[in-house]
């Protein structure tokens, strides 16, 4: 704040810039030069911060562990929109039924799922991970940066998902483990050369 006043008062005429004091410049440059660097997955610096999320009661207690850990199903098999859109998406019920018309049909949770399918009504899941309305977050760009352009084998995508979603492989119903607040985002952007322009993320 005070810096900005000094800056302005030192300039009587906008068109005849005398430039900033050299020290100022260096401070500014430190913020300014943040060109995206080509990095390998190994170079990615995971964001810091933890959060102690509470348990959420879902219409069906979906076991992420069974799918992602026991059966080694890729995150993006179900959350298929993540690589194409800003939202990762909840898989369409038809995708669940693609397997569960034959697999584990006798289990109570699958019976419940089948009921939804037959009624033609998708389950109303409770949101666990969310960012405020004024935030523009896109899964697609983050996957491109940390997976596809970083030569990370797609099998290992859960490492990158885990940056923000925690170790989902070892959860049943997802639980919020990262703060997902601005500091969390910005620290990661700074560490990995992400953009710092406000309008990149705020809408």
């Amino acid at each position: 704040m005070s810096e900005s006043r000094i800056f302005l008062s030192s300039e009587a005429n906008t068109h005849r810039s005398g430039g900033l004091p050299r020290v100022m410049w260096m401070i500014l440059l430190a913020f300014a030069v943040m060109l995206p660097m080509v990095v390998n997955a190994a170079d990615a610096i995971p964001p810091k911060g933890t959060y102690d999320g509470k348990d959420v009661l879902q219409p069906i207690e979906f076991p992420h562990d069974t799918h992602a850990k026991v059966n080694q199903i890729n995150c993006m098999y179900c959350h298929t929109y993540a690589r194409r859109s800003k939202v990762a998406g909840i898989p369409p019920t038809s995708k669940c039924m693609g397997c569960h018309t034959v697999i584990a049909t006798d289990k109570p949770r699958i019976k419940k799922l089948t009921e939804y399918w037959e009624k033609g009504e998708p389950p109303k899941w409770k949101k666990v991970h969310d960012v405020p309305d004024f935030v523009h977050f896109t899964h697609e760009k983050h996957l491109r940066r940390f997976v596809f352009n970083a030569d990370l084998p797609v099998e290992n995508v859960s490492e990158v998902c885990g940056f923000c979603h925690g170790d989902v492989k070892n959860m049943t119903v997802a639980n919020k483990r990262k703060p997902l607040n601005m500091g969390f985002c910005v620290r990661c952007h700074e560490a990995n050369g992400g953009p710092s322009d406000c309008w990149k993320c705020h809408k």
Partner: peptide, 19 residues
């Protein structure tokens, strides 16, 4: 970050004018 953005962009603008 906002402040730095603001200052940075103003500086870029002025440098641009000079050049």
């Amino acid at each position: 970050m906002s402040l730095s953005n603001l200052l940075n962009d103003w500086t870029r603008y002025r440098q641009g004018i000079e050049e």
